[in-house]
Amino acid sequence: MTTDTASAEVGERQQPGAVADPRTRNVLIVGVGGQGVIMISKVLALLCQTQGMQVKQSEVHGMAKRGGVVFSHVRYGAQVWSPTIPMGEADVLIAMEWAEGVRWLPFLRPESGVFIADTQQVIPPFACRNRQFGADMAYATETPAEIIGRVSDGFALDAGRMAEELGNARAGNTILLGTLSATLDFPLDDWLSVLNQFVPKGTEEINRQAFLLGRDWVEKARQDPAGPAGLAPELAPPPIQPDIDVRLEITAEWCKSCDICVKLCPERCLELDEQQIVRLKDPDACTGCRICEWLCPDFAIAVHHDNLAEANA
């Protein structure tokens, strides 16, 4: 979906051309559904309009409800032609989810781009495709320190936790907006007044605090890159489940060859043998999910998680 917000009604809008810095700037905002990507891009777009600039914004947000990818391109300047940012030309890449930030890195300007990322991990189901106990998760393995070392200017902060400490876990996106504000040249008062128009009634104050928190965080990180604010938090994807030994106990005399377990096992690791009795064809594929145990009408399969107690200890 592409929206040309340049034509929207904004009070006291100056004419394009009267802008101090006529270059087109590109801000790419990425995250997953429900994090507030669109809110950030709207605040930024309206702010640029109040500064007399032309703005083009385009976004993809259809997958929001399923925790899918959401991104928004915001381009502003004296005259903006295309609504999307070409590869390698984002001046700022702001990621509300860690792996999304890493994924969109090629869009950042290699020599001058600013990278801002929340270290929050929203792990998609896709990353858990290996359902074995103790399996690795297919999630970005790059650490914040690695990425920050790779970009020309970068900030990684745990905005989710900062917001929680502030008293409203939902204010994480406002913290990142504050962080963004520290990297762009717009007056603080204008940021705050535009922000006020977008936050829900009654949350103006907490959002103002969150905004300032994010903004100050950048200042502190700049002054002291090794200090607590500048240090990128450590993070590693948690293991899916502890390493557990799975054992299938089959009571062949009870099996009635109904085929339910064979067809409903998600790993397709069961089969009926020559006698039409169930058999574990592929023990390595079995994840111990218990679906066969639950759905066998004849109680012919029992799934044992032998060292479960130790693994959880």
Binding site: K256, S257, C258, D259, I260, W294, C296, P297, D298
Partner: peptide, 9 residues
């Protein structure tokens, strides 16, 4: 019960 009968479940 017959093979596949839901009553067992």
């Amino acid at each position: 019960m017959c093979p596949g009968c839901g009553h067992g479940i």
